[in-house]
């Protein structure tokens, strides 16, 4: 059974039909990427999975369990953690407190302590700056913090919304390396990206989204070699 299954979802913003019968599946242990242009519905898909938007039609299920009746915070308990677009860290709290907030719903203190060690190994920079106010971190460090904060929830499925946005190319590469590292440690990842080039390098599979509909799907390899993807998203004529 797929870890995440989004089936024929129709989501609306008021009267605007944003997702038109979208279906995706994410298997345990995968990195799946969702690529598409501005306004294709990438973020809306994530918001629908998180429960921020309830679909009018279709279903989102985690390990076969329909998420429809659950509230946003309850979906977090189920093991879905979001790294929001634009990072959205708690800029006036310290790095340590931000991470602590990530583990808010957990009560297993030993497990939390373990995860602190784990994220500090993944992101040594955060360890150095643990008592610094998060708003004073650089953009790249803030992205690390947002990712680490989501990891602190010890999620089974991590949703990453545009982790490369506004970062220098060298930082983008290191962020994607970390994503692979996190995945190797056993966290399933759904990655939403405009930077299709990078996304298709780290992902196992991918979906191409256009105006609320999936127009293509397949392994990352296949998508990389697809002429339409090359032309529209990779800039290869």
């Amino acid at each position: 059974m797929a870890l995440l299954e989004v089936r024929d979802v129709h989501s609306y913003y008021g009267n605007i039909h944003a997702l038109k019968g979208l279906s995706i599946t994410v298997e345990e242990g995968e990195i799946v990427t969702l690529i598409g242009a501005n306004g294709a519905g990438k973020t809306t898909t994530l918001r629908t999975i998180c429960g921020v938007i309830k679909p009018r039609q279709g279903s989102v299920s985690l390990e076969g369990e329909n998420l429809e009746p659950f509230k946003i915070h309850e979906i977090v308990y189920k093991g879905v953690a979001l790294v929001p677009e634009g990072r959205r860290i708690f800029s006036r709290l310290t790095v340590y407190e931000n991470l602590d907030m990530g583990a808010y719903h957990r009560i297993d203190n030993d497990g939390i302590a373990e995860d602190f060690d784990r994220v500090f190994v993944l992101f040594p920079r955060l360890k150095e700056r643990r008592n610094q106010v998060a708003g004073t971190l650089s953009g790249g460090e803030q992205q690390m913090l947002a990712t680490a904060r989501a990891l602190m929830a010890h999620p089974r499925l991590m949703l990453l919304d545009e982790p490369s946005m506004g970062l220098a190319p060298v930082l983008v590469e290191s962020i994607f390396e970390t994503i692979q590292e996190i995945n190797r440690e056993g966290t399933t990842i759904l990655l939403v990206e405009q930077n299709a080039h990078m996304a298709l390098q780290v992902a196992h599979r991918g979906y191409v989204l256009q105006t609320g509909e999936i127009v293509l799907d397949g392994t990352a390899e296949a998508l990389r070699n697809n002429p339409m993807v090359q032309k529209s998203y990779l800039g290869i004529e």
Partner: peptide, 18 residues
């Protein structure tokens, strides 16, 4: 702590499971 998260950013606070 959840009050402080709420003050900082309501949306993200929810995404943290609050």
């Amino acid at each position: 702590r959840s009050w402080i998260a709420l003050r900082e950013d309501e949306d993200v606070a929810q995404a943290m499971g609050i």
